[in-house]
Amino acid sequence: MIDNLQEFLYQFFSSKQCQVTKVNQTELSIQLTRELDQALMNRPFYWHYMDKIGRTGEPMSLHLDTGTQPENKEKEWIHYGSPRLQQIFQYLGQTAKFTVLYETTTSEQRKALLPWLLVNVRVQYYGKQTKEQLHSIGLQLINGQLVTQMMDRLATVTWGRRIEDYCYTISPLIKPKSGFQRVFQYVENQLLDQDNQWIQEANTSLEEELQLLRYFFAEREEQLAKEEQQLRERLSPRIQLTVHNAGLFYLTDSTSSNF
């Protein structure tokens, strides 16, 4: 969970190599990079033009305020649900999908690193109403050990994007592709809601709506079929498993054995 939005944004822009200053408790001043300017500022023509004439172009800066009172127009007021934050979230969601990371150790002993597949799965229930669950699942790709709450476990480890000189990785016995299937299988068998009332409610509601539709569209067959299909798409109970993000994590045996 995000508990401090200003801190969250500060971290985000810093890791994207932007210059960020905390102006006060709620405000941030950000000099964007070209990448972020293109992602957030909605001016493709400017960059197209700069590229055409061979200039580097100047990324814009942002002044964000996460406070609860909008005070002046110079600052951009940002809060959950506001279009700007929604845009940043969307960008983050799209770009931070994959990772490969290696545990950083302090010892200089030669060490083997075990491969883990981490899958953050979102379970979406669609029916008369909707809801979501988020599961973070880790699968050890050698022995098939499977654990939940993987993100919390991984957060206790220091990570590097390169393997350290004195470490080496062990090749997975389980291919990531079948790893995903195992994870999905596990979610479907163990983690889905056991209470099926929502399915009945969705079916009842669909039936009701269909009846209404048939009454009011009785003499317009083609339209009726189209509307029926739309209703079914919206109300037929179904579950969707999507991967929010996933990665390969290489861990020492001692860290692994704590999981």
């Binding site: 985000f12 890791s15 969601g93 931070a96 999908k97 990772t99 993100m151 994007r161 929010h244 990665g247």
Partner: peptide, 12 residues
């Protein structure tokens, strides 16, 4: 690929 921090932020 992204570093741990962004990956974690996306999950948060």
């Amino acid at each position: 690929l992204v570093d741990w921090q962004l990956f974690q932020q996306s999950y948060q």
